[in-house]
Amino acid sequence: MVMDNLYNQTYMKQACEQLQGTIECDFVGLAFQESKGPNIGWKYASGNSNDKYERITLRYGKGIAGRVLSTGRPMEIKYFPQNILGKALEYPIMLAEKLLYAYAVPILINGIPKGVLLVGFRSETSISDDEKKFVEKAAADIKKFLSLEKM
């Protein structure tokens, strides 16, 4: 996608860091479709505890990010791995970053989910409705930035 130039990379990295600072969460990840092929990977992260996210390719329809991509709707997980759909092994980013809470929203380009923005905590915390709106706004800002870049 349009993630390859330095300006875009700086913008995305800063967007993750700013969101982490505002929500005061432990982890923020931004996944996008690769420039070639159908694969979607975690391109940017803030607060990551290791580099596993760089090697993870999202499974379409699986886990929190995979489901957000397939449904195009936000998803929240509380007290992971309790009360999850499927098995804990289907949630790689939760396992890789040892997250107990996550809220993920789609980044829609022309109405189609092309990316995922995720905020997470390593403690049994959750975020308020206002904070959720802030995450959604951050995703909308990223979408706007990408749309402007394409023009």
Binding site: K52, R55, I56, T57, R59, L95, A96
Partner: peptide, 8 residues
């Protein structure tokens, strides 16, 4: 396995 969990 590596592309799912990021573990080498």
């Amino acid at each position: 396995f590596t592309s799912t969990y990021g573990i080498l």
